[in-house]
């Protein structure tokens, strides 16, 4: 399902003395199957953009197109449920949304709200649990008896069981330890590939953006500052640093190395593997300083 935002603006508490512009002139295209990373500091407007992706917020100016649905301000926006069924959102600390008595009931809650039969929903729950790396034996447990990491996975399973076409992830690994972080990110990536999902990852992590995304959008002060492929975005790392943003560790290392050795590699490398090969070759040839 294609999503596109064109010239979207959102004001909180519009027409009151407390009015505040959260985002303006935001245009982003997300064709089916894209893995898009949305990057920016806290307060850059990225969470506001996220909430437009399934009509939790309706723009005060501009248009959001989600599949066939057009969402605009000053008009009655019907069938938002259809949109919400297609776009699953994993919010930050999603374990906070768990509420049912058992893991199974919690996972089927979403699908059944959207009219899926109980039998079908239960089948999906099993499937979703497997995807997030949990065993069926926890289906009958209370979600509140699980460990923090397991709760996170159950909450994610609850979103996956809705069978969304688009998956929106808001800092899905915040607070997890390195192993948990890696497992969850890999899981989403596998799913992205296997189901040809559109994935939108809202993150602070330049590493994850460089590693998984095919498109990156950088937000700053409510506006889109830069967009492009990871290679495009990171090919001018000093510009990002000037904007007060991080660059992936690999890119930062390449910058430092180039500076120290007074050389310029042919391009920006986004993985340790590629960079180390390039450096090995360079050093093998010998560097003239």
């Amino acid at each position: 399902m294609d999503i596109s935002l064109s010239q979207v603006e959102y004001r909180y508490q519009a027409n009151t003395p407390f009015e505040r512009i959260a985002i303006q002139d935001v245009s982003i295209d997300i064709p089916t199957g894209t893995y898009l990373a949305l990057i920016g500091h806290t307060g850059s407007g990225k969470s506001t953009v996220l909430q437009h992706l399934n009509a939790l917020l309706v723009p005060t100016e501009g248009t959001v197109k989600i599949g066939e649905h057009e969402i605009k301000s000053h008009q009655k926006n019907k069938n938002l449920r259809e949109v919400r069924q297609k776009v699953g959102i994993v919010f930050q600390f999603p374990e906070h949304q768990l509420f049912e008595e058992t893991v199974e009931k919690d996972i089927i809650f979403g699908p059944m709200n959207f009219g899926v039969s109980e039998k079908e929903a239960k089948a999906r729950a099993r499937e979703a649990l497997k995807q997030v790396g949990l065993g069926e034996e926890i289906l009958e447990k209370s979600p509140f008896d699980l460990s923090g990491g397991q709760m996170r996975r159950v909450a994610i399973a609850g979103v996956l069981a809705m069978n969304p076409d688009v998956l929106v992830l808001d800092e899905p690994t915040a607070g997890l330890d390195p192993r948990g972080r890696n497992e969850i990110m890999e899981m989403f990536y596998t799913l992205h590939k296997k189901r040809n999902l559109s994935t939108i990852l809202v993150t602070h992590s330049m590493e994850d953006a460089a590693k998984y995304a095919d498109q990156i959008v950088i937000m700053q002060r409510g506006r889109v500052m830069k967009k492009g492929t990871p290679t495009e975005i990171f090919s001018s790392p000093s510009e990002l640093v000037k904007m007060g943003l991080d660059v992936p560790e690999v890119v930062r290392f390449q910058m430092k190395l180039e500076q120290k050795l007074s050389v310029k590699l042919d391009k920006v490398y986004l993985s340790i593997e590629e960079l180390s090969s390039a450096v090995a070759e360079l050093l093998g040839r010998g560097v003239r300083t």
């Binding site: 330890d177 390195p178 948990g180 690999v250 290392f253 180390s276 090969s277 450096v279 090995a280």
Partner: peptide, 17 residues
């Protein structure tokens, strides 16, 4: 379940190369 710092990681890759 932990990780190693980036400089150690890339150092290792260099050694392998």
């Amino acid at each position: 379940g932990l990780d190693i710092p980036f400089s150690v990681k890339i150092g290792k890759a260099f050694r392998q190369k």
